[in-house]
Simulated scan of single mutants.
Amino acid sequence: MTIRERLSAFALLLLAAAVATGAWMVAFTNMSLDLPRTPFEFTVKSGSSLRTVARTLSDEGLLPEAQTFWILGRVLGKDASIQAGTYKLDRPVTPMELLEKLARGDVSSVDIAFVEGTTFRQWVAQLKKHPKLKQTLAGKSLAEIAAAAGLAEGSPEGWFFPDTYKFAPGSSDVEILKRAHAAMKKRLADAWDARHTDLPLATPYEALILASIVEKETGAAVERTLVASVFVNRLRKPMRLQTDPTVIYGMGEAFDGNIRKKDLTADTPWNTYTRDGLPPTPIAMPGAASLRAATQPESTEFLYFVGKGDGTHQFSRTLEEHNRAVVRYQLKR
């Protein structure tokens, strides 16, 4: 065989190899990858290369082998764009679909929901129980936890916005608190900017305190601005707020579910039966509606309200009216 014939044969072999490789690449790109389990979850750590991810997925049984997937990513220019996070597959996918998912950062997310009117202590307990959160706050005091969340306002109570927060599995507990704190600061600033100008409140923090009381005292949402008006009217008089939720908050863990007459007379910084004005801190996390109600209350002359037993209240302008309402809705039940 002449040198020319040998070179021609070698070129044909290279062409055949290229065609075979191309055919394999096309077939690989569109093959269905069966899941090792359903759902199949895997985590891409920050800084991981596509080669590392491919090896991991091959070891897990998702990819038949790692090299071709890595080459596919290199050819398409996506090897440097994969995103860290936890991914979830609910059905078989093709390598191309998988690569696109990694490049988009289409990570799975879970959520945690905080209810309006809950306290900082309850939030911390809820965070500790969430199985998908990275726990970093164990062993820390409430003050240390607040500091870790970036709180510079003193007491953490009231400073976290109750909402549903989505996050990638493995996110830290403190990151959730940071997001909730930032959300509350913005919500409070917006509410304060939109406030009625004649409010007997000197600072946004006082509005936050009042909003927390409104949150705890409101049973029916339609009454929220009326409840707020009672406390605003009392602050203008001035009259003591005389609201049970502040007493309960001041009792702390001593509260057993019942509030008694002796509790109303036992002085604490939060007892609004024994002390004038607002308590020193919020007593819970108020939601957006209570922030609005505290800063934009209804214009009324109401100074009293009593529960009717169905979640709503009877509002009164005078003590005489209030006493009649107490007899009707409380004493004769």
Rank of each mutant, 00 (worst) to 15 (best):
L188T: 02
R240D: 05
L303G: 05
A220F: 12
Q83F: 01
S8D: 00
Q135Y: 09
N271K: 08
A143Y: 04
L63I: 02
R234S: 07
L235H: 11
A211V: 08
E206C: 13
T243I: 00
L142W: 11
M25F: 14
V107Q: 13
A146N: 10
S141D: 11
L102F: 11
L235S: 05
F42L: 04
K332C: 01
Y87A: 01
I145K: 12
A9V: 10
T272Q: 02
Y165I: 05
P200S: 14
T52S: 15
E206F: 09
L151V: 09
S48Q: 14
E253W: 02
Y87M: 07
L208A: 11
A289Q: 11
T119C: 06
D198L: 10
A211Q: 05
V230Y: 01
E253Y: 04
A325C: 07
G105I: 08
K128H: 11
N30L: 12
L201K: 09
L291H: 03
A266K: 14
N258H: 12
F28M: 05
D267P: 06
G307C: 10
T203L: 09
T118F: 01
Q67C: 00
S155D: 15
R6D: 09
P282C: 05
P238S: 12
A66P: 05
V232L: 06
D263K: 02
G309P: 13
M184C: 01
F302A: 14
T164Y: 05
V115K: 09
Q135S: 15
I248H: 02
K261C: 02
A180I: 05
L98S: 10
S141E: 10
P64W: 06
K166Y: 13
T38A: 14
P92M: 07
I82Q: 00
L201W: 11
M25N: 06
E215Q: 15
A66E: 10
L188R: 02
L89V: 07
A182D: 13
E144M: 03
F305L: 08
D59E: 13
S141G: 04
E153P: 03
K216I: 03
R195P: 12
G287M: 07
L98H: 13
D256T: 13
P131N: 05
P39H: 09
T68Y: 01
P200E: 12
M1Y: 11
E144T: 05
P131S: 08
Y165A: 05
Q135V: 09
G309Q: 04
E65R: 08
F167C: 08
A149R: 06
A284F: 04
L210R: 10
I112M: 05
M1S: 14
A138F: 09
D310C: 10
A20R: 04
R55T: 10
P297W: 11
G250M: 10
V326T: 02
R317F: 00
L62S: 04
R179C: 00
I283N: 03
P200W: 09
V110C: 01
S109E: 15
E116G: 02
G250W: 10
I145N: 13
P269I: 03
A113K: 15
G277Q: 08
A103Q: 14
